[in-house]
């Protein structure tokens, strides 16, 4: 697998970026040159180190309150990573069992689960999230919960399609003929075959949730002091005089989402999964 990964430039770049991202998030407190929330008003809006008025003490410059942008990006990666993984994980945790039940049993079980999923699919995710976040205080946990609520149906729908395909394959019939119980068949024959699609889905969904969190922070519902989306929104009003604030946070979101997509694409080809 590693060999194939190394041969595919897109996947290679993608996984490098993600590895860096995870590394940075894990060791944020060692890597960040400053405390991300220390504000020094007299040092506000300093441009990045390489520009004329720049200062290498602040490699990517400072924001409107004089906080080091690089440190904010480094700490911000934690929020993105935690919410991305927790959110996508929770989606799969809910979506996978429901998809197995709905896809395997069909009939009324399928009807009930999928109609409920349809209701959730019909509500625009961001809108639902904004409505919910107005009710709950935005914390990492509540925001994760909100994303899960807004997007579990996608996991269910996607994985169920795969289950429908698998249950028609002969080995399932053979297992039935051999007298295996329904739960045994689901656990031993169906579940292992949905691993591919689940992995691909998770990789892509982490990207979507990172974007989702950034959008929500951009709109002012931030669960943390250091969020890429929050910096992006905050830098917006300074874009013509201090381009670096929005640019670097936007770039960070862009790169991570792009990398996850590259990796997801490659995983899809590698695991030979068909997504609709």
């Amino acid at each position: 697998m590693l060999k194939k990964l190394l041969k595919n430039p897109k996947a290679l770049v993608g996984s490098m970026i993600i590895l860096t991202f995870v590394f940075v998030a894990l060791f944020a407190s060692y890597l960040a040159p400053h405390n991300p929330n220390t504000q020094v008003l007299s040092k506000r809006l300093i441009p990045p180190g390489w520009s004329q008025k720049g200062n290498w003490e602040y490699p990517l410059g400072t924001d409107a309150l004089g906080r080091d942008l690089l440190s904010r990006l480094i700490y911000g990666s934690r929020v993105s990573l935690i919410i991305g993984i927790l959110g996508a994980g929770a989606c799969v945790l809910i979506g996978l069992p429901l998809a197995l039940l709905a896809g395997y049993y069909r009939g009324w079980v399928d009807e009930v689960i999928m109609r409920i999923a349809d209701v959730f699919l019909s509500i625009p995710g961001l809108l639902l999230a904004i409505a919910l976040v107005a009710l709950l205080e935005p914390t990492i946990l509540s925001v994760t919960l909100i994303f899960t609520l807004a997007s579990w149906a996608w996991a269910t729908r996607t994985i169920r399609g795969e289950v429908l395909k698998i249950r028609e394959i002969e080995f399932v019939e053979a297992a039935k003929a051999a007298g295996a119980g329904n739960l045994y068949i689901i656990a031993r024959h169906i579940l292992p075959n949905t691993v591919g699609i689940t992995i691909v889905f998770t990789a892509l969904w982490v990207a979507i949730i990172i974007l989702f969190e950034a959008s929500l922070s951009f709109l002012g519902f931030s669960c943390s002091d250091t969020s890429w989306g929050w910096d992006l929104a905050n830098g917006k009003q300074y874009i013509s005089t201090a381009w670096w604030i929005s640019t670097f946070s936007g770039l960070a979101i862009f790169l991570v989402v792009l990398a996850l997509n590259f990796l997801g694409d490659w995983l899809r080809d590698y695991l030979d999964v068909k997504l609709d």
């Binding site: 892509l204 979507i208 974007l211 936007g250 979101i253 862009f254 989402v257 792009l258 997509n261 997801g264």
Partner: peptide
Amino acid sequence: RVKVSGFIGV
């Protein structure tokens, strides 16, 4: 969907 959202910033 994923790709489109990725380019929203641009």
